[in-house]
């Protein structure tokens, strides 16, 4: 009897969700919002992508870290002093480290700081190797972590060719200076990484890094939509991605030309 009621409840809930699945159109019209985001339907198909315009980013100068701070503050990313136990969602690497295979091909870029983050690959190796599906690919292209399920085996860290994953070697809480109560911290023993601000997209907001950039160097959008700004940039400008030879098909692009 009890079981029946539970099942009924779940089915009922899901059924109602199905009825509401039609995309909410008005978010498309609201200014400053990401088109396609924030529909109440459970994640529509798509391919979110981030384009970093390096010309604008470099103009901001090496000391600008607005996007990094915004992200790390929004997600309670701990600031751990020990470099080798640091947790990072988005950070800067010199060009030749971010693009080792390009070394010597673009001398003008040597030493320039490039923003790096999870590439939300179209064919993500981390998802392939995870033994519990704690990391998985959503229909909209976001490579998500389910922190509730992660067993901390770190296989995904071995599989990620971009060094985008961090492990919580210790309790992160003491290293979070100002806690954002709207987003949970993580705990010791789980792996974490950038989530393309999945929680903000659900409200129709662009990712925190994009919103924080005063130079318009970060553009976010859906590659499936031919009219999206990201699509237009990719059509018009010379862009590169990290380690394309590995076949992971990253969704973070860098405008360098």
């Amino acid at each position: 009897m009890e079981m029946d009621r539970r099942t009924f409840l779940k089915m009922g809930g899901l059924g109602l969700l199905g009825l509401m699945a039609a995309p909410v159109v008005d978010v498309l019209l609201k200014a400053g919002r990401v088109s396609g985001a924030g529909t109440s339907a459970a994640v529509t198909a798509g391919r979110w992508a981030l384009v970093v315009d390096m010309k604008k980013c470099l103009e901001a100068g090496p000391s600008c870290a607005d996007c990094i701070l915004a992200c790390h503050r929004a997600h309670n990313v701990p600031q751990i002093p020990d470099l080798q136990e640091q947790v990072r969602w988005i950070w800067k690497e010199p060009f030749e480290h971010a693009f080792p295979e390009q070394e010597g091909r673009a001398e003008s870029l040597a030493g320039k700081p490039f923003l790096v983050l999870c590439n939300h690959c179209t064919d993500p190796p981390c998802v392939r190797v995870c033994p519990t599906r704690a990391t998985f690919k959503r229909q909209d292209g976001i490579v998500m972590m389910d922190y509730h399920r992660c067993i901390g085996c770190r296989y995904c860290m071995a599989a990620c060719p971009y060094g985008a994953r961090s492990f919580n070697f210790r309790d992160p809480r003491p290293y979070v200076s100002t806690t954002n109560p709207a987003y949970p911290t993580r705990e010791r023993g789980v792996v974490e990484k950038c989530n393309f601000c999945e929680e903000r997209l659900a409200e129709g907001l662009p990712p925190a890094c994009v919103a924080a950039c005063r130079y318009g160097a970060l553009v976010f959008g859906n590659l499936v939509d031919p009219h999206s700004q990201v699509r237009q940039i990719l059509r018009a400008r010379y862009t590169i991605c990290r380690k394309p030879e590995l076949g992971t098909r990253p969704n973070v692009y860098y405008v360098v030309g």
């Binding site: 392939r128 190797v129 995870c130 033994p131 519990t132 599906r133 704690a134 399920r149 992660c150 067993i151 901390g152 085996c153 770190r154 296989y155 492990f167 919580n168 010791r188 023993g189 789980v190 792996v191």
Partner: peptide, 26 residues
């Protein structure tokens, strides 16, 4: 050795609860 390497050993049964054939570790 696999167990002592896990960050969250208490959750090891997630490997069985959520069998994942695409994972070699599984």
């Amino acid at each position: 050795f696999v167990i002592v390497d896990l960050g969250k050993p208490a959750r090891i049964f997630n490997m069985i609860l959520y069998p994942t054939p695409n994972s070699i570790l599984f």
